Amino acid sequence: MLATAERLQVLTESEQLSKMILQTEIADTYRQLYDKLKTDPCTQKKIASFVRMKILYDEVQRFGRYHPDYSRVMKETRQLKRDMDMDENVARFRQVENELQQLLDEISIIIGKSVSEHIKVPTGNPFFDNASVCSGGCSTGGSCGS
């Protein structure tokens, strides 16, 4: 692969963009909450309990309702998942994680559209996926790129 001036410029600009993203308030908050999530002993205990129960859950799923511990494992798994999800550190981290993902999705759409209107950018978010494919709306007679 030959290094051209254009490729070097793209690499330089993409590096600058990544540095800008890392300096955003959302990215900073994400790192802080991630550290808190990983260091809080109560939160880690809830996560570890859920992970252990998830292993049992996967085993029970192989046999379905015929497994002797089916009801107990299903109930405990739901309870432990709820306890983990209701933990303040987990809830705040997931919220900021979604905000950061939305920022990255928006940037991906902008970059894709700057290259061509017909580029599909998979974001995992139906709102953005539809925004990157259709122009004018399929139901309004607009053209779809799918």
Score class of each variant (00 low, 15 high):
98 N>G: 14
122 P>G: 07
65 R>E: 15
76 E>A: 09
42 C>G: 14
34 Y>Q: 12
120 K>A: 07
97 E>L: 05
92 R>V: 02
68 P>N: 09
75 K>V: 05
111 I>K: 00
48 A>H: 11
36 K>R: 14
117 E>K: 09
23 Q>T: 08
64 G>S: 10
119 I>R: 02
107 I>A: 02
100 L>E: 07
34 Y>E: 13
7 R>D: 08
44 Q>M: 13
79 Q>N: 13
88 E>Y: 10
98 N>M: 12
102 Q>S: 12
69 D>P: 01
57 Y>R: 08
88 E>I: 13
122 P>M: 08
110 I>Q: 13
6 E>Q: 10
88 E>P: 04
72 R>M: 11
106 E>M: 04
76 E>P: 01
126 P>K: 07
122 P>W: 09
21 I>H: 01
61 Q>S: 11
30 Y>N: 05
128 F>Y: 15
132 S>W: 03
70 Y>M: 07
29 T>L: 14
98 N>A: 15
85 D>S: 08
137 G>Q: 04
62 R>G: 06
112 G>W: 00
27 A>R: 06
50 F>A: 00
70 Y>V: 04
21 I>E: 02
111 I>E: 00
27 A>N: 08
16 Q>D: 09
12 T>E: 14
106 E>T: 02
85 D>E: 14
40 D>H: 07
8 L>W: 06
105 D>N: 15
41 P>K: 09
6 E>A: 13
128 F>T: 01
86 M>K: 12
88 E>G: 08
103 L>V: 09
140 T>A: 14
93 F>V: 01
116 S>V: 03
116 S>Y: 03
28 D>E: 14
96 V>G: 06
134 C>K: 05
13 E>G: 00
123 T>D: 03
105 D>Q: 12
106 E>G: 01
42 C>P: 00
3 A>T: 09
127 F>E: 13
146 S>I: 06
145 G>V: 05
35 D>V: 08
104 L>W: 02
49 S>D: 15
107 I>K: 03
16 Q>G: 05
32 Q>G: 08
17 L>Y: 04
144 C>N: 10
60 V>M: 07
40 D>N: 15
143 S>Y: 15
25 E>P: 00
104 L>G: 01
96 V>F: 06
131 A>Q: 11
79 Q>K: 15
55 I>N: 13
142 G>H: 05
38 K>L: 11
36 K>S: 12
29 T>Y: 05
43 T>P: 01
63 F>G: 02
107 I>S: 00
66 Y>C: 07
20 M>Y: 09
139 S>E: 15
45 K>D: 12
3 A>F: 12
80 L>E: 01
31 R>F: 04
1 M>A: 14
79 Q>T: 13
33 L>C: 05
80 L>N: 02
49 S>W: 03
87 D>P: 02
110 I>Y: 06
52 R>L: 13
58 D>W: 06
88 E>N: 12
108 S>P: 00
60 V>K: 03
73 V>E: 03
84 M>F: 10
135 S>A: 05
109 I>W: 04
74 M>I: 11
66 Y>H: 11
18 S>A: 15
114 S>G: 03
63 F>Q: 14
55 I>C: 06
47 I>T: 01
128 F>R: 03
91 A>S: 12
129 D>L: 04
120 K>R: 14
